[in-house]
Amino acid sequence: MPLGFTAIYWRDMIKFARSKAMIFLSLLQPVLWLVFYGISMSNNTGLFFAGTSVAPPDAITVSYMTFITSGVIGMTILFTCLYSGQNLQFDKQYGLMKTIVVSPMPRSQILIGTTLSGITKCLIQTTIITLFGYILGAQLFAGFLLSNIITSAIGLILFSILFSAGLMFLSNMIGLKVNNHDVSQAIMALLTLPLFFASNALYPAETLPFTMKLLCYVNPLAYFIDSVRYFTIGPNFYAFGFNYQIGLEGLLSSFIALGIFALVMFVLAIFVIKNIRDF
């Protein structure tokens, strides 16, 4: 079995561990979302949704902070992965990629290595944001038994891996295809905007206009956030004036959607890296 991906992974992680400023900044952004957006909106949701509907008796009612912690986790993974794709772009720009692609290592190993390092970064961030949300008063894993917490944590990790893998394949593909750093950065920014706002990260998708809702149906971020809410809050809860009944079917459709997303991106990325010549 080719182990070249371990070299790629090793290098990415060394550089990640060294970039203290980058780690700090990449955590600062989600934390700022939680602090500024989360806290200020928490004080307003009561006004917006006063009397719109009443929590059903079988659903747990959770705070807005609890609701958006999942959204911020999704958003952070989205940003981290799309940003990481630029690493391959830099490798290309600084010519390092040439030395890698003339080595006997299969090119798919590059993809696997960078994807694994992206996943690692995302898992670290997810953990830290979850803890931080907890500190800010998000009711995560509230009322769970210890065994439930453990299975939920495992589920959360598995879905995070699936989602970040799909995103890493996508961003690596863009990083490989685009020859100009500014262009690739612009593409990433352009992608994050619709993905983020046509989702259920900050508000319920049910209130979105029809076309946005359609976008939401093909948006992996929305499926991922559903699964995070399932694992951290529960299958049936009430927040932001809405009753969320994700249930096992919801979790299953998230799994299928994220699985398809990761698979399609993997196939496309492999195709791109196998056929690209201008390094």
Binding site: A7, R11, T99
Partner: peptide, 8 residues
């Protein structure tokens, strides 16, 4: 090291 590794 990196180069040696990718050349197994």
């Amino acid at each position: 090291e990196f180069h040696g590794k990718i050349h197994s």
